[in-house]
Structure formats: structure tokens, C-alpha cells
Design a protein around this nucleic acid. Structure first.
Lengths: 243, 243
DNA sequence: AGACTTTTAAATGTCAGACAAATAAAAATT
DNA sequence: AATTTTTATTTGTCTGACATTTAAAAGTCT
């Protein structure tokens, strides 16, 4: 691990990159302890605050964790799927909001990816995952549910559908697409009728998954996508031209 | 923006979270300048090094950028799709390597997602994107290409296919899945015959996209997936039982 | 007056040294 | 032997200082 003091970049950025490379290349393995901050500052010939800034950069990416006290220090993190979700969701959410992604674009991406999981989910979904979906549908049908709670349950339903594919890589990738849509979905006011329609679609999907009928799952998702986009369009139109 | 000095978490982590929340909620908008480090340290009642650690955490997530000099400071970044790619790829790569994801699992996820783009790509691919794909196939057929260069070209080919869908959200999500596979693919030694077979598949895909024949693109991707998995299986078997 | 140069001020980047707090291991005590 | 105390190590935080970069202000010359 070497840094170039003549580079234009900050020293802390260079040090962070050097350690990051060491982790990626496998030179540093999971749960291995990094040298103490004092040792690192000597090794890289920089001050301790500079080393600390580098370590905080890595901590922000959950590449390392730190522990105080004797035999404490910085340790290489096992980057878990669970832990990577939140970061993925934060990034995706900001990407959508900062780049003025249209509802249609986000919706299209989300359903395209979800349909990719549906075929696998029809084959492999467990009874447990099916039960989760049923439970969420039931929650959605309860009166007095706020729009936000309805959306949250919707996300949970689709998460279960995706998890049904039994492929953690797919679940991880989809987490961003599905959850990042939630702020956009929250802008929709759901009428009693539209909730009913969505619940009907969800029931159809659950039924099809129970029957392991991938064709029907796919067809229903297509319908649900089209319905969702229509709903958003109506809301947008109503804002422009209130009755 | 407030922090709780009695919380167990590090002050720099709390400050970073407070600023992060302000960005996500829209309280701080793109290109807005944050208060100077001195002002922030006064505002949060902490020292400047602590504020700096917080800012470095945010910089590591590309939420802010810093500029030196008069009228410099920390500015809220526009999180661009391009900029988010690298982080997504780093994370995905580490996830795969640290969690011992099998080649089959990663491969399945990648092709499932890619097929989700294929239908859209058949409708919308531009002449330019098609030309990129043709060029990459041509590069792949050149003799003397290293395995790594072959893989890199393979990635470029599939990136063009995905970009053909004309949906930046899809391209972003797929970047992780496709690029993160590369280290795994690099473990495969490509024989002249296997390269030929892959190139044939690529040509078929390009032809089908030229004809806007989504069914054929999908079918060919299925074949390519099965071929790729077979290839990996053969390599694994040969390692266990060398001839 | 206008174009160029110099100065200045503000901001981040870096350093050195210190103390506080947490923690585990070692030493002392019961 | 079990418990308590001490000690050493390590991260967390603070203070104060200086270096470097940069844009704007001030000054100078044509």
C-alpha cells in the first residue's frame, strides 16, 4: 500500500483508496484488523487526523468498522447483502429525486426488473414468502390505512415477491429499484376504488404464485404496471386542471 | 439540523447523518454551499476535525464535493447516474467476493435482469448502440486478445444492449450486475472454440436487435446463459480433476 | 478608463500534541 | 480461585497552528 504525496488529490482520499484497493484485492481479508491509527500515520507518513479522515471515508461505505479500547481498532467488514441494501436505497432515491426522473421511467424500470424475478419466484417461492404476501394484501385491505402505510405494505408485498426468486443478488439489485420508487408512489393519493383495484391485482399475483403459474404472474404484473402508470397520469392531470 | 451529544454513536457519524438527512429531505439543494467548517463546528458545538470527519464521510458517498480557496467550501453534489456507477460496481463486486456467491447465482441474476432490458432494447435501440455492439463483437474476434480484454469487450457489448432500453434507471441498476460479474468471468479461460461460440451468440443478438425481434433476443440470451454456465462448470471440473 | 499585476482574505488541507473514554489484559487482593 | 484494581492500548475529541489554494479587492501602469 503506497501513496503519492505529489498527487493532486487529498492525502486522506489517497490513503482511503489504497486501503480500499487492498480490501478489494483480498490483501486484507474480512475481520482482519488494520494497523492502529498511529501505525498507519507512520506507515503513510501523515498525521493521525489525516489517517482518521481516510478511515471515516471507508466507514461511510461500511468497508470497515471501528472499536475503541485495548485490542480495538479498525476491522474489515463483511459486506452483507442486508447491510448493502440501505446504501443502495439511499443512492437510488437520491438519483431519482435529483435527476428529475419521470414517474414513467422509474415505473418502467421497476416493473421490468420485477418481472425478471417473477418467473423464478413462481418456481421457487416458499410457503413462508407466499404467506407474507397474503398478510400484506390483508393489511392493505384494512380501512383507515394512511396512504403512506399502504405504500409501505405495497413495497413489502413486492419485496416478498422478489425474495421468492431465492437469489440474493437479485434481491439486492431490486431493493434499490423497488424502495426508491416509494417517495414517488407516495405522491399518489389512493382512492378507495384504486386501492381495491391494486389489491385485486395483488391477489391475482399471489394466486398465480400459489399455482406456480409464471405466465399469469407476468401478465398480471403487466396489467398492474399499466394501471399504476394510468393512476399517476390521472393525478398529474388533476393537479394541472383541478375539478 | 440537530445532534444529540449523549447518543452512543460518534459525533462525526451523527453530524454526517444530520447533513445527509437534510440533503435527502431537500432542505439542502443541489450545488448549495454548506456552511464553512468553522461555522459548522460552532453550529454543532464540536471541533473542526470532528466536522471534517463528518464531511469526509459524505464525500465518500459523493453526496458533497469540496473546493479550496476563497469562496470554496463543501457543496451538495448532483448525484449523477454516471457517478453512481462506480460505487455500485465496487459494492456489488465486494458483495459477490465476500459472500462466496456462486457463479450460477450471479449468472442467473445477471441474465434475468439483462433479459428484462432486452425487450425494451429491441424496440428502442438506436443505430449508434447497434454499431457499438457490432464493433465490440468485431474486437472479440481478433486473434491475440487476452482473456481479460475479451471479458472487457463482453461487458461493453452487454452494456450497449442494456443502454439500448433507453432507460437510465435500468442502465444504472444493471451496471452493478453486469460489471460485478467480470471478476468471476475472468476466472474462466476462454479457448478459441468457446470464444467462437460466444461471438456467434453475440452476432445473433445483434442481428435480432437490428430486426427488432425481441423474442429472438430473449431466446438467444437464454442460450448464452446456459452456455456460460456450462463453461464455468467445465472449468471448475477441470480444476478438481486436471487431465 | 481599461487592462494587468499585486495584495489580501477566506476557505480547505495538514500537522503536532494533548486529554478523555472505553476496553481488555495483567496484576493485585481477598 | 474468584474478584477487584491497575495498567496499557486504542479510538474519540479538542486546541491551536501553519500551508495551500483561490477568488476578489486593491493597486499600478499604459
Amino acid at each position: 500500500m503506497k501513496i503519492d504525496p505529489k498527487k493532486p488529490a487529498d492525502l486522506s482520499a489517497q490513503i482511503a483508496q489504497a486501503i480500499r484497493d487492498a480490501i478489494i484485492s483480498g490483501e486484507l481479508i474480512v475481520d482482519e484488523r488494520l494497523p492502529s491509527e498511529a501505525e498507519l500515520s507512520e506507515q503513510f507518513q501523515v498525521s493521525r487526523p489525516t489517517v482518521r479522515e481516510a478511515l471515516k471515508r471507508l466507514a461511510a461505505q461500511s468497508l470497515i468498522r471501528t472499536q475503541r479500547g485495548a485490542s480495538g481498532g479498525a476491522f474489515v467488514n463483511r459486506l452483507s447483502f442486508e447491510g448493502a441494501y440501505s446504501q443502495q436505497i439511499t443512492t437510488s432515491t437520491l438519483l431519482l429525486s435529483m435527476n428529475a426522473v419521470s414517474f414513467d421511467t422509474a415505473c418502467e424500470a421497476r416493473f421490468a426488473l420485477e418481472r425478471a424475478c417473477a418467473a423464478l419466484s413462481a418456481q421457487r417461492r416458499t410457503a413462508d414468502q407466499l404467506a407474507t404476501m397474503r398478510a400484506e394484501v390483508h393489511r392493505q385491505s384494512q380501512p383507515g390505512l394512511t396512504d403512506e402505510a399502504f405504500c409501505a405494505s405495497d413495497v413489502a408485498f413486492h419485496r416478498a415477491l422478489v425474495d421468492g426468486a431465492g437469489n440474493p443478488v437479485l434481491s439486492y439489485q431490486l431493493a434499490g429499484a423497488v424502495e426508491a420508487m416509494q417517495p414517488l408512489m407516495n405522491m399518489i393519493t389512493f382512492t378507495a376504488r384504486s386501492r381495491e383495484a391494486i389489491i385485486a391485482f395483488h391477489n391475482q399475483i399471489a394466486d398465480a404464485l400459489e399455482d406456480r403459474d409464471s405466465t399469469k404472474v407476468d401478465a398480471t404484473l403487466v396489467e398492474l404496471e399499466s394501471y399504476t402508470r394510468q393512476l399517476a397520469q390521472d393525478v398529474a392531470q388533476q393537479r394541472r386542471n383541478p375539478a
